[in-house]
Amino acid sequence: MELLKRILKRKSSREIAKDRLKILLISDRVNCSPEMMEMIKNDIAKVISKYMKIDTKSMEIQITKTGSKGRTLKNPTLYANIPILDLNSLKN
């Protein structure tokens, strides 16, 4: 049963390739170095941490495009996924 689940869940290598390329090419195209992304991530974490407890280890940031088609990134968006560890620590 477990095996069947895994087989059904498994992505085809075509889908994996497509997903990897989409993310890879966006960062290639915006010409934003991984170091710079890391610095942006750390700064965001620092600011948010002032107000609530967050999981800095598993937070992710990414530049994605929304709504635009074609090669030029017309609407680039910085997308941040920041897990909150303790909502009760919200300060006023």
């Binding site: 290598s13 390329l21 090419l25």
Partner: peptide, 19 residues
């Protein structure tokens, strides 16, 4: 290989490269 899901189709490639 495309039929098996083990190679990107021409639509996939065109979608990614947009030319």
């Amino acid at each position: 290989m495309i039929k098996r899901g083990d190679m990107m189709s021409s639509d996939d490639v065109v979608d990614i490269l947009s030319v």
